[in-house]
Amino acid sequence: MYKLIKPLFFQFDPEKIHYTVTDSLKIVQKFWGLPGLLKSVYGFKHKSLECNVFGLNFKNPVGLAAGFDKNGEYIEELANFGFGFIEVGTVTPLPQPGNDKPRMFRLKADDALINRMGFNNKGVEVLARKLKTVNRDGLIIGGNIGKNKNTPNEEAVNDYIKCFDVLFEVVDYFVVNVSSPNTPGLRALQEKEPLMHILNTLQLRNLKKESPKPILLKIAPDLTNEQLDDIVEIVNETKIAGVIASNTTLSRDNLQSPENLKAEMGGLSGKPLTRRSTAVIKYLADKSNKSFPIIGVGGIHSAEDAKEKIAAGASLVQVYTGFIYEGPGLVKKILKDLVS
């Protein structure tokens, strides 16, 4: 069915149709019986899919990546498509509009997206209030946290602390996002010294809690092997729970789309990222001797893509662009293939 309606969706601006579809989904699912119908169509349960990663029990290893539901407004509706976990955000302490529109572009010839959203969100207080009302039904929820655009890098740690404190009681794990290419200067925080400062500060705060939460680091796929070596060292030294590999890429290599699309500023996601993100996962897993879990994300458009990420060393996987291009049935296809 999705193959029939996707061409219609793709006639519209990608950001506008995203909110049109998710808002409609929320309205339609209020009708009696539809959530159960969606679960029966798209859900898939099997005992072998259950897993414990960084101390959390997941119904299955397939999640929705951050960015799809920045403000936690559609969690219950999206959960009906079979996800084992959903990551909300990226959220910042203060609300911000993000970059000027248009800021999301389809590269249909490459099954890809370019976005320069710029951490548009309603602020951490709004997200926290929303998460308090969510019926989770065993769903794991992650909180992806970042800094406001106008916060200088030398003060960035304070933004991460604020998000951590406000969300602590309402998320199951945290993701420190210093790898988005769409906030000026943010990726400089991936350098060893500032990153150690942010992670150590959060981890010290975390360990003072009665029940600490897993803290993960989301990294860019554009890091060199030397920088990845630093990431392994940083994760082991700070004793955070793991890594998400990877965010979007600035590379435009081997794209088939028109030059005007390739020239758009922002992070590229989708099929062109598949191999690189898998290579980063394998490098981290091998270099660290699998001393920490990795969530694999980037270019998962099929069950085979997901299995390759897991074979490379990922404990869990996330989808985003593949979910848009392949439709909601992608999750069930991956889960069924993982069982077979």
Rank of each mutant, 00 (worst) to 15 (best):
L207G: 03
K208V: 01
E193A: 14
M196F: 12
K208Q: 15
N200V: 01
F174Q: 00
D172Y: 13
K162V: 09
Q190P: 12
L202S: 06
D165H: 04
G185V: 02
F168L: 04
L167K: 04
L189C: 07
M196L: 15
D172E: 11
L189M: 07
D159F: 02
N200C: 04
R187S: 08
N200L: 07
C163Q: 05
V175E: 03
V157R: 03
F168H: 14
L202F: 10
C163T: 01
E210L: 15
L207N: 15
V166R: 12
E210W: 00
E191T: 08
K208H: 05
Y160H: 01
F164D: 04
P184D: 04
V175H: 09
F174G: 07
V171Y: 06
Y160C: 04
D172T: 12
S180H: 06
L199M: 06
V178G: 05
V157W: 00
N177P: 12
L189H: 05
G185H: 02
V175L: 12
N200M: 03
E169P: 05
N182P: 09
V176H: 10
F168E: 01
L199F: 06
G185A: 08
V176F: 11
D172G: 14
V157L: 08
L204I: 11
K208W: 00
V175G: 12
K192I: 11
L199V: 02
E210C: 07
Y173N: 13
I161L: 12
I198G: 03
L189F: 02
I198C: 05
P181Q: 07
P194H: 01
L167N: 05
F164N: 06
I198T: 11
K192H: 11
E169S: 15
G185E: 00
E193V: 08
